[in-house]
């Protein structure tokens, strides 16, 4: 049971990445892989500020600002220098490795005895269950915030930017600026996942971000499959499904480990799993 609880906790932590990828890939139609770097950045900033006994609100703000800055940088490189988004993301991600290492000062920083987000309030005595409540509240607030944003006039303009650029420019929107803001939001959300995971697992690690982009992609693709299948147009439901996608993804990984798959093979299992969810709808529709 504890085993699935851990998967659920992980899934909730990764909701930020899933929302981030949803915004960059689905809303803006930009393949952004700054993710690995901005996720670690979130974790590293959290770790270092926690060990310096900074207040919780400051840590949260710093993580959001750091992630947003990383995303904005990718956006600026992509729009102003007209460099392919994938390459822009790789450049920033690569540079962030040095930044993260400099901030952290070493490759691993344990936080075990420090008070974290998960020890601010004690709703329940079982620490995992207590974390679940705090995490659920946090993710619920995040979902509401993004959902509201996407419903506003600004949010509609964001969604239109990924859809028809000539149209939205003719309607008075500076699409370069919009994409920079969009990537900033996406990577701020990704950094929040790093913030949560670091506090959940009790350490920040320079290599914690390797391959996390696949978690976001997998979650969004699961969500997209459900969205298409159920023909959902509502923004709120789509977001809930992205959240569900992040949780389902972690459950599948947990299940794989529980049936005795070698943890070293986890990344390949992840890749194959994403391949299956991407490939399956195409294969079945071709036969139909």
């Amino acid at each position: 049971m504890d085993f699935y609880l851990t998967a659920l906790l992980q899934g909730l932590c990764f909701a930020g990445i899933a929302f981030g990828i949803y915004i960059s890939m689905k809303i803006f139609n930009i393949p952004d892989i700054t993710t690995d770097g901005s996720y670690t950045l979130g974790g590293v900033v959290t770790g270092i500020l926690l060990t310096h006994n900074q207040p919780g609100w400051l840590i949260l703000l710093a993580v959001i600002a750091a992630g947003a800055a990383a995303g904005a940088l990718t956006g600026i490189i992509h729009t102003k220098l007209k460099i392919n988004a994938l390459l822009a993301g790789i450049l920033v991600m690569t540079a962030l490795y040095s930044v993260n290492l400099t901030i952290l000062g070493r490759s691993n920083l344990p936080l075990l005895s420090l008070p974290t987000l998960f020890s601010v309030v004690n709703f329940l005595t079982d620490p995992n269950q207590n974390s679940l409540i705090i995490l659920s509240l946090f993710v619920a607030a995040l979902t509401l915030l993004i959902g509201y944003l996407l419903k506003t006039d600004f949010g509609i303009a964001m969604r239109a930017t990924g859809n028809s650029e000539p149209m939205i420019r003719a309607l008075g929107v500076n699409t370069d600026r919009m994409k920079i803001i969009g990537l900033a939001i996406a990577n701020a959300l990704t950094a929040l996942s790093g913030y949560l995971i670091t506090q959940m697992q009790g350490f920040a690690d320079i290599s914690m971000g390797i391959g996390v982009v696949i978690i976001g992609l997998g979650s969004v693709i699961i969500a997209e499959t459900l969205i298409n299948w159920l023909q959902i147009t509502s923004v709120w439901l789509s977001l809930v499904l992205v959240l569900a996608g992040a949780i389902i993804f972690q459950f599948v990984l947990a299940l794989t480990l529980s049936i005795g798959v070698n943890p070293n093979m986890l990344k390949i299992v992840t890749a194959v799993f994403v391949l299956i969810i991407v490939g399956l709808p195409r294969l079945t529709s071709r036969n139909a």
């Binding site: 506003t152 600004f154 509609i156 003719a170 008075g172």
Partner: peptide, 12 residues
């Protein structure tokens, strides 16, 4: 909103 700002309020 072609001539105006697209702000952070719900106008629909």
């Amino acid at each position: 909103l072609r001539t105006q700002n697209k702000g952070l309020t719900i106008g629909k």
